[in-house]
Design a protein around this nucleic acid. Structure first.
Lengths: 255, 255
DNA sequence: GCGAAATCTTTACACTGTCAATATTGCGTC
DNA sequence: GACGCAATATTGACAGTGTAAAGATTTCGC
C-alpha cells in the first residue's frame, strides 16, 4: 500500500477537467442522463450517472492495475470525482466490489450461453460451456478473481445474488440435460449432486489452477504445443474415450 | 482497514511485559535460543528466536482474526515486538505470507501422507489423499486461503517453492501409482497430464467451492444428513461405480 | 577488548477506508 | 415561479496499514 506514488491527492481541479463527458444513455433506471452543464462550467457538480461511471472506471482500473490496485480512491480518481463520492452509491468497498462482481457474473453467463448456442454438434455443445468458462477467466482474470473471492463480497446484495445464482442454475441445467434428466428446484439424488459437484469442481479447479500458474509444470511436459484448452478437452473427454481408469488398485503411498 | 479499533499503537511497555518467555528450542538453525535475560530486565532487547515466534504469532492471528486481520503490525503486536521488527526477518508482507504458506504446505503434505499411510484397503488408500486434502482445508481455512492466494506470495522463495513443489509431486506420484505407471520427471502423455489435471482440479475445485459456501445449495438438496465428505466420495467414485455418463448427447442449451 | 554486523525500536511518510460536516444541485410543493 | 427538502458531491479528519530511514542495543568475529 505504501508505494511512493508521486501523484498527490489534492489535484481535484485537474481531475474535474479530465472527467470525460460520456453520455451513458442512462440504461439502468429512469435517472436522467447528465444534463448539459449550465453553459459555462463544463463539469457540473452533480455527475448525473455516477453509479455506472464508477463501475466502468472500476473495470478499467482492474484491468490496468490488477486486483491490488482496485481501491475506492483509485476508482474515484479514475472517474474524476472526489474520494468519498463512491460511498453514496455503494456504501462500502465491499459494496463496490459486490456490484462489480455482479457485472462480471452477467458477462460470464452471457459468454457461456452464447458459446453454447453457437455450437453445432452435441459434443461441441457439451464442451462449449466449460471452454467458455475457462476462456472468460483467461480473458478477464481480475474480474474472475473478484467474482470468486468470497470474503470480500456481500452475497446478500440482490444483484450479486441473482447473477451468481443464475450462473449456478445454468450449470445445473446443463448437467441435467446431459444426463437427460430433469433437475428441478427441490431434491437431488446423491448421483445428481455428485455429477454437478464433479463438473463444477473440475472446471472451476482447472481454471483456478491455470490462472495461478500451477498447471504450467504439466503443460510444459506435455507434447509440443499442447494448449490449456486442449488439456481441458482431454480432461473432460476422458469418460467418453473410456480411459478413465485412475482409481485402480494401488498399494503404494509414496514412490 | 479503517476500523475504529480502540487499542492504540503506543503501548509498547505493556507489550514487552506481555511478551511470553517461550523457549522455542531453536529448531531451525544454529541460532542460540533466547538467553535468560540479564537477571533484571526480564525482556531483553534482542528476542533470540523472533523469526519462529513471528511465524507462530502469524498462525495464531490468522486463526483468530482471519485473513483480513493478518497484517504485519498485528503479527508484531501478537509477538510483542515493535511493528517494524518483522521487516528484518521477512523483508516484506509478501515475505511473511510466503514463509507462512510454506509452513502450511508442510503441514498439508504431512497430513496427506499420514492419512495415506494409515489407510488399509487399496480403495481407502486411493481416497485418503483427497479426503485429507479437503479435511485440512476445512480445519485450517485461513491457512489454505493463503497457500493458494498466489497474487500475494513470492514463489521464488526457496522454502515455499520447495514445499509447494513437494505437494504437487506427491499428487503426481499418487496418480501414477493408481495408473500403475511410472510418472518420471520429464515428459508426459496427454493422457497422463489429463489424469493429473483432472484429479487435482476436482479436489482443488471442490475444496475451494466448499470453503466459499458455494456447495451448500447442493448439500441442502441432497438426502438428509449427507456430509461434504460423502459428496466428495461419491464424486470421486463415479468412474468406479460406472455411472459416469454425464457427457452424453444433449441437444439443448437451456431448459 | 573492540569494532562491525545483526537485531530491534523509533520516527516519518504516503496510502487506504470510513465517517462527519459542508457545499451544491434537483425536484416536489405551495 | 419561489421555497424547502432530499439527493448528490466535496472537504477534512482520523485510525490503520506497509515501508523506508535513522537511531539504540546487543552479539560476534577478530
Amino acid at each position: 500500500m505504501g508505494k511512493s506514488d508521486p501523484k498527490s491527492e489534492t489535484r481535484t481541479e485537474a481531475a474535474r477537467i479530465a472527467r470525460a463527458p460520456r453520455k451513458t444513455s442512462s440504461a439502468t433506471s429512469g435517472r436522467p442522463a447528465r444534463r448539459p452543464a449550465s453553459a459555462k462550467t463544463e463539469t457540473p457538480y452533480h455527475h448525473g450517472a455516477l453509479r455506472e461511471a464508477l463501475l466502468q472506471a472500476a473495470e478499467r482500473v482492474l484491468e490496468r492495475d490488477g486486483l491490488a490496485g482496485l481501491t475506492l480512491r483509485a476508482v474515484a480518481r479514475e472517474a474524476g470525482v472526489s474520494h468519498a463520492a463512491p460511498t453514496h452509491h455503494f456504501g462500502d468497498l465491499t459494496g463496490l466490489l459486490s456490484e462489480l462482481a455482479a457485472v462480471g457474473f452477467r458477462q460470464f453467463n452471457a459468454a457461456m450461453a452464447s458459446a453454447c448456442d453457437t455450437a453445432t454438434t452435441p459434443l461441441a455443445r457439451a464442451l462449449a460451456r466449460p471452454k467458455a468458462y475457462v476462456a472468460y477467466a483467461q480473458a478477464h482474470p481480475g474480474m474472475y478473481g473478484i467474482m470468486f473471492r468470497t470474503e470480500r463480497l456481500d452475497y446478500s446484495r440482490p444483484s450479486l445474488h441473482e447473477a451468481a445464482e443464475a450462473s449456478f442454475a445454468g450449470l445445473a441445467n446443463a448437467i441435467g440435460a446431459m444426463r437427460q434428466e430433469q433437475i428441478s428446484g427441490d431434491a437431488l439424488t446423491l448421483d445428481q449432486g455428485a455429477a454437478i459437484a464433479r463438473a463444477w469442481s473440475m472446471v472451476h479447479g482447472f481454471t483456478t489452477l491455470l490462472l495461478d500458474g500451477r498447471l504450467s509444470d504439466i503443460l510444459e511436459r506435455l507434447p509440443e504445443g499442447t494448449t490449456a484448452e486442449r488439456l481441458l478437452e482431454a480432461m473432460l473427454m476422458a469418460p467418453v474415450t473410456g480411459k478413465f481408469a485412475d482409481i485402480a488398485l494401488s498399494n503404494r503411498c509414496s514412490p
